[in-house]
Design a protein around this nucleic acid. Structure first.
Lengths: 347, 347
DNA sequence: AGCTGATTGGAAATCGTTTACTTGGTTTTG
DNA sequence: CAAAACCAAGTAAACGATTTCCAATCAGCT
């Protein structure tokens, strides 16, 4: 075990072992075409010197960097960190590393991050685009020669394959579920948002209401506790108050829940609550909150798998068409029935 | 904007711009010693060709990889993902990328991850050691020539600088707080754990109880809802039931909360609850749960800052001694008073 | 013994960038 | 007016691993 200083190189190892660099290289890469005893000897020297091949040199010779990039709005966000965890696992299974950067939903920062990652010669990229329409992003993607997968939000025109959960169907199903359980006045709440996901969910809500012959009521002004309080209070004191709330994102769900608790409105007796997207403690609060759950880790996993599939099979035309076929992977959501919408399971 | 194919190189750019490679290189790196008009011209060509320098080649010439590695138990864990987010931000500010890997608290996997990162020639490492004592880790660290910072859990003998929150003081303070507010029988609950953090917290609880002349009661068997139910129920039906619970980790806090709710035990009237470590919805449940909060992002931030400090200032002896002085950075926790332990703030 | 053929090991080119050293041309100055 | 100083820009040699080709060795044959 060597102490400090500059890391040893192949030739140093070769000299120490009294062999050529070729032999050392072969030992490193599986030991083909090397006699068992030299192999053992060289391996011993390698271990003794604490030698580790320099990836940069390897990459320079035209090899993979064994590195993929992930650009997400925030690392701390539970949704994206679960995604990242799953993607990292797949990367590891494919002998690769995952580099994570946060765009904070800023298209400019996103572009910068992507450029840096490309400069580092990552083998592929997974991106949750800050903005599906962003011209900068689209231009970059067009000029790119490496595989890219979008997650959570597709890029306009399916420029790259995307993996998303079925926000539309999920929201429609959730709304239908409320309708079927007899709720008469179902109001949809969310923070004002231009995000693709929220947009799809609103569409799903509207579709379900429409096909049931109901009037859709959407309130997109719930940004914080205050606005939630205002919105809910005025609805309750107004004419024709809602008997069910469908909240389209976690923060909105939480605000609504808090407000209802504070106002001593009984859930689900007076008002039912159904949230889109699950969060750790939706099951812990009393009453526990029913939600439409997204297959979070699956999104990250499938995206990474798709990426490596593309990475490993660039040769065959068959693969290309296969990839072309799957420009948009839509993963199913499911309803987690808890106690907040009058459709209690066992407990 | 070039279409696809292999990425352009310096010499290609040089040829296209009718200059030497040196000039191109100079333009890339700030444009010193290049006339304004050639600079502009070369820059134009670079943009036109979509040229991006190959980091691998740059690294090979002995430069930083502008890359740091982070090895944590889990990426999806809120604590560590916040850490990661903060570390990434610092990395970005230092023009570097963050590579994240998950060890799942397995020392073997941890070692493997570290080796891979080292092979990729990361400039430095941040690790949350799976096991402070691990011989493999200690040996690796000793043989290493790059800066490493430990987070959350120090490495034995302060082999590398560590950034941790003050688990001992936090737990002692929390316990003292409960004592001061008149709770007579304060029981400490946690999952059985050999983790450094939990150990420190137990030590803190014991210290506080001891110096108050109380008998410490620790139950380390709360691993899931079932075991929590059993533990709490038997304590409640036994002689001398507790009037306060101090839970040492989030999962334990949640289980205890759920069980108390289920048993219709009033919080904090019958039993008070204080948790160690904060989580998003501790403030949302009713009653909201008071906790000892760790400076989560600060840990990640300080660790990364320390790393870059070491990375940038290897020259001066002053800096070395400064680093030596700060082998263990202990960050203060604070008590977040909510409604679960009889010491309610305003609401 | 000498030849064949398989097997193992080595020398050298290569990847794309940086950088020490030159070159040629201009400007300043004694 | 010549010499010194200066500046932009180019040439070529690294960096460390892979890889192609070639050389050497040795066993097994005839």
């Amino acid at each position: 075990m060597k102490k400090k200083g500059t890391p040893p190189t192949v030739s140093e190892v070769a000299r120490a072992a009294n062999v050529g660099t070729t032999t050392v290289s072969r030992v490193i890469n599986g030991g083909e075409r090397v006699s068992p005893k030299t192999l053992a000897h060289v391996q011993r020297v390698i271990d003794a010197m604490g030698y580790r091949p320099n990836q940069a040199a390897r990459v320079l010779k035209g090899h993979r960097t064994k590195t993929i990039g992930l650009v997400i709005p925030s690392i701390a966000d539970p949704f994206f960190s679960s995604c990242a965890e799953a993607a990292q696992a797949v990367a590891q299974a494919n002998d690769s590393l995952l580099i994570v950067t946060a765009s904070h939903n800023d298209p400019h920062s996103e572009l910068e991050n992507l450029n840096i990652l490309i400069s580092h010669r990552v083998d592929g990229l997974i991106v949750a685009p800050a903005n599906s329409q962003s011209e900068g992003l689209r231009e970059l993607l067009k000029s790119l020669s490496l595989p890219v997968i979008a997650v959570d939000r597709p890029v306009a025109d399916a420029l790259v394959p995307s993996v998303v959960s079925d926000n539309f169907k999920g929201a429609r199903f959730g709304t239908q579920h409320l309708i079927e359980h007899g709720y008469k006045r179902i109001v949809c709440l969310t923070g004002e948002s231009t995000l693709f996901t929220i947009h799809e969910r609103m569409r799903g809500y509207r579709a379900a209401m429409e096909s049931a012959g109901r009037a859709a009521t959407l309130n997109t002004s719930v940004k914080d506790y205050r606005s939630a309080e205002y919105a809910i209070q005025s609805m309750l004191s107004g004419p024709n108050p809602p008997d069910a709330l469908f909240t389209l994102k976690n923060s909105t769900t939480i605000y609504a829940f808090e407000v209802l608790q504070k106002l001593n409105v009984s859930i689900p007796k007076t008002i039912a609550l159904l949230g889109f997207d699950d969060f750790e403690l939706a099951s812990t609060v009393r009453p526990s909150i029913s939600v439409i759950q997204q297959p979070v880790e699956e999104i990250g996993r499938v995206a990474a798998e798709l990426l490596f599939e593309q990475l490993l099979g660039i040769r065959s035309v068959t693969t290309q068409s296969k990839v072309k076929r799957a420009r948009l992977v839509t993963l199913e959501t499911r309803l987690i029935q808890r106690n907040s919408c009058g459709c209690s399971p066992s407990n």
